[in-house]
Amino acid sequence: MLVGQQQRLQEDIREIVAQHGHDRSALIPVLQELQKRHTTVSDFAMQVVADELGIHPAEVYGVTSFYAFLRQPTKGRFVFRLCRTISCELGGKSRVARQLENDLGIAFGETTGDGRFGLEWASCLGMCDQGPALLVNDRVYTRVTPEQVHQIIDECKSTFGAHARQAAHS
């Protein structure tokens, strides 16, 4: 990482911590905000957060790796999380999963080469009456069919550009 980038990240983290406070209970909200802005929480970022909160970096790593939405193996601008729990399975999630892999060209747990899309499994999304359910960043799609997958990816692509960050998290 370039020194300039590191400095920017550091400043960003200081700003986030100033908002949420230096108490340990601010750790998860800080990590969530950081991830929202930078799509991932890097080792360097964890170190800075630890310094800011006055705790050991291993503590920050321990928390980040514990929570599914923080540890996030993928780094895409758009994170696709397909529910794999029972009602969505009964509703046909396996075919949606296959089509997601086909249309994105990656397997679950991977990120596309251009850094645009990440594909992950999710445990129950609480949309069991309308499965299969798919969460794309903060947006839920329900009763997803294999043929809709392409359209959902296109929707993301059309919002990717100058205003991508706002669109991705709106």
Binding site: R24, S25, A26, I28, L31, V63, Y67, F69, L70, S123
Partner: peptide
């Protein structure tokens, strides 16, 4: 932040405390 176990009340409190 995505953890089923946090529905257990003492795990939830741990999570609240960071």
């Amino acid at each position: 932040a995505g953890a089923y176990v946090c529905g257990e009340e003492t795990a939830l409190i741990e999570s609240l405390e960071g």
